[in-house]
Design a protein around this nucleic acid. Structure first.
Length: 231
DNA sequence: GCGACAG
DNA sequence: ATCTTGTCGC
């Protein structure tokens, strides 16, 4: 597929890209060891076309930060449910290319295959970066599920069109669940296992939570663009 | 037509 | 997503 800039795409063209990229998604048990895991997120000011993207690297399973990559970019593709990748992936790819070392796996904010066309932002990024990814979202996009039991660690399958596309996970006692789904080079069971191991003290698993904090600091001018080594 | 709708 | 105010609980 030839290079296309997402900024001037119409939704119908974006759908076509998703339908093409979908064939490249690999759903399989994760086999490679995970020593370094990453969290990704985007921050922006309402009504602004500037997005602040970040990828934070954490040692696994300790979850201690070892570095981060920050990039600022202009985006013009609007937010349309089901097309989040067209706003986030370009900036994330820049942040990815800036990393001096690549993580073994990334936890992306948003869904993976738990998507109307099985091409959520985590799958989209995973295919383009050719890296294992997991989608971790705070809200459902599509599919049916039973609410997991109130106890931390409880989970239930997320079903879409008669297929288990992800899992609903209770990360802490009596808090709202999060939605986990494979992005690329991953399956539901592996994704659930990894995210469960990423639970720290808060509702949002550490990779995503720290990435969110990072890009927010970046947007507010508290830290600068570029790669920073923390090890 | 109606309801749902990641960030 | 971001912004804001208020409340609950350790």
């Amino acid at each position: 597929m030839e290079y296309v800039n997402y900024d001037n795409l119409k939704v119908t063209a974006a759908t076509e890209i998703q339908n093409n990229l979908r064939e490249k998604i690999l759903i399989q048990p994760r086999t490679c060891p995970v020593n370094v895991i990453a969290g990704t997120d985007i921050s922006f000011n309402k009504f602004s076309t500037t997005v602040y993207a970040g990828i934070i690297l954490l040692r696994f399973p300790e979850l201690t930060p070892i570095g981060y990559s920050l990039v600022k970019k202009e985006v013009h593709f609007p937010y349309v449910p089901g097309y989040l990748a067209f706003r986030e992936v370009p900036a994330l790819m820049d942040a990815w290319e800036q990393l001096p070392l690549k993580p073994d796996l990334l936890v992306v904010d948003g869904h993976g295959i738990a998507h109307p066309r099985r091409m959520g932002v985590a799958s989209h990024f995973g295919v383009l970066a050719n890296a294992p990814t997991i989608g971790c979202a705070k809200k459902v996009l599509c599919g049916q599920y039973e609410e997991p039991a109130p106890a931390q660690g409880s989970h239930s399958p997320l079903i879409f069109k008669n297929e288990a596309v992800g899992a609903v996970l209770r990360t802490k006692n009596a808090v709202k669940s999060v939605f986990v789904s494979p992005g690329h080079q991953m399956d539901v069971e592996s994704a659930l296992d990894i995210v469960t191991q990423c639970i720290g003290r808060y509702r949002i698993p550490e990779p995503t939570r720290l990435a969110h904090h990072l890009v927010n600091q970046f947007r507010l001018g508290e830290i600068n663009e570029g790669y920073k080594d923390l090890s």
